[in-house]
Simulated scan of single mutants.
Amino acid sequence: MKNANRFFLFFIVSLIVACSHTPLGQAEKTAVDFSKAIYTLKLDEAKKYCTPNGAKLIEFIASNVKEEDIDVLKDAGDVKISVIGSTVDPGDSTATVNLKISNYLQINLMGGKSTIEKEKEEKVDLVKVGDKWLVDLHK
């Protein structure tokens, strides 16, 4: 019986590891890691997951973050991000990951007060460059 339990556990762990190495699993991980960095204002980290044009947009956002935004974020608790759906094109060069984001900071770039919002769905587009998935903030 112990061997059966060990085999089952080994099988489940192997399945999880194998899925995370598929193009879809890699794209989802990049989208989630990017979103966690963005919504926790770790903007230098977020740039690592973007195309060069996306990194420029992140720099613009970073230049508009105020100390009050950081204070609101600190008081809010953890941001929660989960994958609700994803697709990879047949050529494995582009992907779209749909995320549910909860307890996130909505920054007001027009000078108003930023707020913590309850929940939203976000679509993250990615492109494959070499062997790496990058977030494409083209839209």
Rank of each mutant, 00 (worst) to 15 (best):
K2I: 13
K2E: 12
R6K: 13
F8T: 11
F8P: 00
L9V: 15
L9D: 14
F10R: 10
F10V: 08
F11G: 04
V13E: 04
S14F: 14
V17R: 07
A18F: 11
C19W: 10
S20Y: 13
T22R: 13
T22N: 12
T22I: 13
P23H: 01
Q26A: 10
K29R: 11
K29T: 10
K29D: 06
T30W: 01
T30G: 02
D33W: 04
S35K: 00
S35F: 01
I38N: 00
I38H: 01
I38D: 00
L41P: 03
L41Y: 06
E45F: 01
E45Y: 00
K47R: 15
K47G: 01
K48M: 12
K48P: 05
Y49G: 01
C50T: 12
T51H: 11
P52Y: 07
P52A: 11
N53R: 12
A55Q: 05
L57E: 08
L57D: 05
E59P: 00
I61N: 07
I61M: 15
A62T: 06
N64G: 10
V65H: 02
K66M: 10
E67M: 08
E68H: 02
E68C: 02
I70C: 08
D71G: 06
D71Y: 04
V72K: 10
V72T: 13
L73G: 00
K74R: 12
A76H: 05
V79C: 01
K80P: 00
I81W: 02
V83H: 06
V83R: 09
V83S: 08
I84P: 02
S86K: 08
S86P: 05
V88S: 07
V88L: 10
P90E: 09
G91K: 07
D92N: 14
D92P: 04
T94Q: 12
T94I: 11
A95V: 07
A95P: 03
N98T: 11
N98K: 13
L99P: 03
L99C: 10
K100W: 01
K100E: 13
Y104Q: 00
L105N: 00
Q106C: 02
I107C: 03
I107D: 00
M110W: 10
G111I: 09
G112S: 05
G112P: 01
K113M: 10
I116H: 05
I116N: 04
K118V: 09
K120M: 09
K120Y: 03
E121T: 12
E122V: 07
E122S: 11
K123F: 07
D125E: 15
D125G: 03
L126M: 08
V127H: 02
G130M: 10
D131G: 15
D131T: 07
K132M: 12
K132A: 11
V135C: 04
K139L: 10
